[in-house]
């Protein structure tokens, strides 16, 4: 059975690794590299506990082969806090809002939240719930998770744009087309 030497960057550290063709990224991270933040909760790509950032995108690391990440950059929840150990604002808000209980889904939730807020900095509660569709939590009923995402959005918002969102932010491209000069 073929093995492959790969190089990837995990949480800004370059690592070299020999993996089998079939080794899933989540197992390489957990078993080979010791990044146990990403969890395994299912085998059908449904639960999202294994969510990591792969080249900047939130993906399910149980549905990526390790060998596919040769040359890629991966961030796990272990890489969220800053160098001094200060929690990322999303992590802080998950705690402040009691958005975690057993914590097993939390690394995935936090990672998905980061991706959501990067593309939609001020999501509605409904948008948050939809964005978390791929992350199952069995403890919280999601309510405090949604609160945490809202609070994290507020915490991450630039101070000057707090309050009313700038005009044009909420344009739905499907039906509303801003005409030149309107923005």
């Amino acid at each position: 059975m073929a093995t492959h030497d790969i190089e990837l960057t995990v949480n800004e550290t370059e690592v070299e690794l020999t993996v089998d063709s079939r080794t899933l990224l989540v197992h390489a991270l957990r078993d080979e590299l010791g990044y146990t933040g990403p969890k395994v909760g299912c085998e059908s790509s449904k639960c999202g506990a294994c969510t990591v950032e792969l080249d900047g995108d939130a993906v399910k690391s149980c549905t990526v082969l390790a060998v596919q990440t040769d040359g890629a950059s991966v961030q796990t929840v272990e890489g969220f806090a800053d160098e001094d150990g200060e929690l990322h604002p999303i992590q802080e808000q998950f705690s402040a809002e009691h958005g975690l209980q057993c914590g097993y889904c939390t690394p995935g939730m936090v990672t998905t939240t980061k991706h959501l807020l990067e593309s939609n900095p001020d999501p509605s509660r409904e948008e948050i719930r939809k964005a978390l569709k791929g992350n199952i939590c069995r403890c919280t009923g999601y309510q405090n998770v949604v609160d945490a995402v809202e609070s994290a959005a507020a915490a991450l918002a630039p101070a000057e744009s707090e309050g009313e969102s700038a005009s044009g932010d909420d344009v739905d491209l499907r039906t509303d087309y801003p005409t030149p000069g309107e923005d």
């Binding site: 929840v77 009691h98 914590g103 609070s151």
Partner: peptide, 24 residues
């Protein structure tokens, strides 16, 4: 300032908490 709700949270949020399968 909203502080942490629970003392358990930090380890869980940073991936440091050890679940059974995490033990190497």
């Amino acid at each position: 300032t909203a502080g942490p709700t629970r003392r358990e949270d930090e380890a869980l949020l940073t991936g440091r908490a050890e679940y059974t399968d995490d033990l190497s």
